[in-house]
Nucleic acid binder design. Structure first.
Lengths: 258, 258
DNA sequence: CAACATTGTGCGTGTTCATGCATGATTCGG
DNA sequence: CCGAATCATGCATGAACACGCACAATGTTG
């Protein structure tokens, strides 16, 4: 029996019984308990189960996706490169709505200091990320705070958002696909995004390579409405080519220092 | 049995019974009381229970307010009387938005059968309460369901709501005061209510006696915007008199059979 | 083909953990 | 204020554990 095969069988038992015992598994698969423990350790570090004394438990509740400030630390170089590339398209004097998202957070942190930009956001993390400078005043839209998306959502936020007419919307995308368009994980988030799209003059999306070609459950807007997509050179592939045919202005971000 | 498993079982008993006894648990799980005490200590430090002499109590953080269908059973005769009085003001052919609330639920259940009324609501309970009749078509507005208020709230709901122009809004009021106006317990609920008020032609509020003169945290609309208030004869008092001076049409509901 | 790297496994060793018991302190109820 | 119940703490014990090492099977390179 292959190791991966055995681990898959353990995962099956986990979902079926909610727990597994190390000794039990060792007997069932005719391997030593050490091997089982190694399996469980591996699976736990991959987030497939919770390791406890005597065995392992199935991951209870929803596997909590890392909050925004943690997402910001993964693939940080790529996101900084995206932000640097996107920053070139922020025109002096514009009112820019920055949607929630880790790539957008990077943009907020490295706004070009040589241009005046009025920043509006419904994400507290982004509001905090903008370095305090007189040329970059920040307006934070409030509402019911949702830790998952890292933004304020709900009816109150929507009411505030619809009063805005930003020159540029830096839209966050949980998924970006030529056919499915921009999609989001949360229905409330998607509703806010849709409203933002309607009221914004121009739209720009920052998307790391792994977002391209992926689809999240809730539709926001088609790609044809997005004027500019900033992504990585590493993203080239079928999904990238399909996006290029939609007419959007695609900007490739290289390493920062280029 | 795994330690964590046992603690989960204890947590289950806690939520079910509200309390647990150390000796009882020791017998049930066939471990020493020391082990149970260790469990309870651990759980208490994790905030899962409150440690007391002899056992532990469930964390009484949020006292769960009774859901809508339970609130409907308290003061039911008064609410039915309000509903009967309010029903007289539903004009044939009107589109009526019925806001969430137990008094409004009573109204939905006893709509006058001799008039055609297009019912719109964002409360599933109210949609279900309307007896299925061809002259009373029901439109349910969706969104994120909130069990506390018994209605759909959030950005999606607001988006749908603002497309409506109902002839009459039967507004729910958590508090009704001559000075503070109509107020609500939930900010999201209040935001939806405000939008409904803006788009409705006429507004009617059903308020039991105990609502009069009370104030909830979130402002919805001043009393001057409410065209008709239906309340109980038993409500007469200072708060009632103050309301009368605002110019609203005050309707007193008597016992049903009068 | 031979030498080498990689991987999965089992075993030995020392460590950590869960548990029950003993002990003395604390709390409760009368 | 006293006895009984309950508790926290320390300790002993055995089970479960992580780690390092050896070995075999397999794949890789020269």
């Amino acid at each position: 029996m292959l190791t991966r095969e055995r681990q898959a069988a353990i995962a099956l038992r986990l979902t079926r019984d909610g727990k597994v015992l190390a000794g039990e598994l060792a007997a069932a698969f005719e391997v030593s308990e050490d091997t089982i423990r190694r399996d469980l350790r591996e699976m736990a570090s991959a987030g497939l189960c919770e390791r406890v004394y005597g065995g392992a438990l199935a991951r209870t509740s929803a596997p909590p996706p890392p909050p925004l400030h943690e997402r910001a630390t993964i693939a940080a170089p790529q996101k900084n490169a995206l932000a640097a590339a996107a920053a070139r398209y922020l025109v002096d004097g514009a009112t820019v709505f920055i949607d929630a998202g880790s790539a957008n957070l990077a943009l907020a942190a490295r706004l070009p200091t040589d241009r005046r930009l009025r920043i509006v956001t419904h994400s507290p993390a982004i509001a905090l990320a903008v370095p305090p400078r007189p040329q970059h005043p920040v307006t934070l839209i409030g509402g019911r705070y949702d830790a998952e998306t890292g933004a304020c959502l709900g009816a109150e936020t929507l009411t505030e958002v619809e009063r805005l007419r930003p020159d540029l919307l830096v839209l966050g995308a949980c998924g970006l696909d030529a056919v499915a368009g921009v999609t989001a994980f949360d229905p409330e988030d998607a509703a806010i995004k849709r409203r933002l799209v309607r009221s914004s003059v121009a739209i720009m999306v920052l998307a790391t390579a792994e977002k391209l070609g992926t689809v999240a459950p809730f539709f926001v807007v088609g790609v044809e409405a997005v004027g500019r997509i900033v992504t990585e050179a590493a993203a080239k592939g079928p999904a990238f080519d399909a996006l290029g045919e939609t007419g959007a202005d695609i900007v490739l971000a290289g390493p920062i220092g280029r």
